[in-house]
């Protein structure tokens, strides 16, 4: 038995090294850079610098825009998941494949393609002009950024919800109908509560990347909408202020963890979801 145990420890070894070197140590380094000043002495300078109205406004904007995008994804994605799980279509697998396929296209190119459609002389404006309507400026505002987030992250909302809805045993729904439950009752008392795990992971998978994106804001926001990801990117890649960048990363980590904890708490209290 003893030999066996040590063999497993050897098998665990590469994984342990990976875990320590590439997961734990990097996070500790972020902590180190975040909590030291330029001279390498422990200080809260970087955090003081961050907790100024200007930066807090950017953080708030990132959280707010990502929240709006998450709500839109939920509202637009839930029906899709339900339709997919229901019996509207016969060739369901094909439709699942069709929904997954766009995700295989490079995400930057997809976002870039929206530029072609939405820009000043883009496809949409050409169509508008052909119909005799005035040109619109779609890009360079917060709406464009939210739109980009919804576009890029919608599948991440649909699939977890689809998975949890399709796991609901059919006989529960049949029982509810036998007992006289209408469509609304079935939805609010069975489908919705039982799909909460899917909703939670959907929210996580949309909200977290939304808060920290910097590609969408740069492409579709034309650089006019600064998000917290933009500031982190600037600090590391252009300003060379790693301490400040690390401090912002720490704040973002904490905020995201707190948000997710709140969402989970809300869902544990399943009574809230029931009418």
């Amino acid at each position: 038995m003893k030999v066996k145990k040590s063999l497993y420890m050897v098998a665990l070894f590469p994984f342990l090294i990976w875990l320590i070197l590439l997961v734990v140590v990097p996070l500790m380094l972020i902590g180190y850079y975040g909590f030291t000043n330029a001279a390498g002495i422990f200080s809260f300078d970087n955090f003081h610098q961050f907790f100024q109205p200007d930066y807090l406004r950017v953080l708030w904007r990132s959280l707010y825009l990502s929240l709006v995008a998450t709500v839109f994804c939920l509202l637009a994605g839930y029906p899709v998941a339900m339709i997919l799980a229901g019996n509207t279509f016969r060739k369901k697998t094909l439709l699942v494949v069709l929904l997954i396929a766009p995700m295989w296209m490079n995400f930057l190119l997809r976002t870039y393609a929206w530029l072609t459609l939405l820009e000043g002389n883009g496809v949409f404006n050409t169509i508008l002009q052909a119909m005799g309507l005035p040109k619109q400026s779609f890009l360079g505002n917060t709406n464009a950024v939210v739109f980009g987030m919804v576009y890029n992250f919608l599948p991440y909302m649909i699939f977890p919800i689809y998975n949890s809805i399709s796991k609901i045993p059919k006989n529960i729904l049949e029982a509810a109908r036998d007992l006289g439950g209408g469509n609304a009752t079935c939805f609010f008392r069975i489908i919705l509560p039982l799909s909460v795990p899917g909703i939670i992971s959907g929210i996580t998978m949309v909200f977290v990347p939304g808060v920290t994106t910097f590609v969408i804001s740069q492409f579709l926001g034309s650089g006019k909408v600064t998000l917290i990801g933009d500031i982190i990117e600037q600090q590391f890649m252009h300003a060379g202020n790693w301490g400040f960048g690390s401090a912002i990363s720490i704040v973002v980590m904490v905020v995201v963890v707190v948000c997710m904890w709140l969402v989970n708490r809300f869902s544990d209290d399943s009574g809230v979801m029931m009418p």
């Binding site: 734990v24 140590v25 990097p26 980590m253």
Partner: peptide, 27 residues
């Protein structure tokens, strides 16, 4: 405890993972 640590990079946003690894490599 090890599985919890394993899922850390999945919960972290990409940008934090990316930045932390960059710090490691330059360090």
């Amino acid at each position: 405890s090890m599985i919890n640590l394993t899922y850390l990079p999945m919960l972290n946003s990409d940008i934090v993972t990316g930045v932390s690894l960059m710090l490691l490599f330059t360090f």
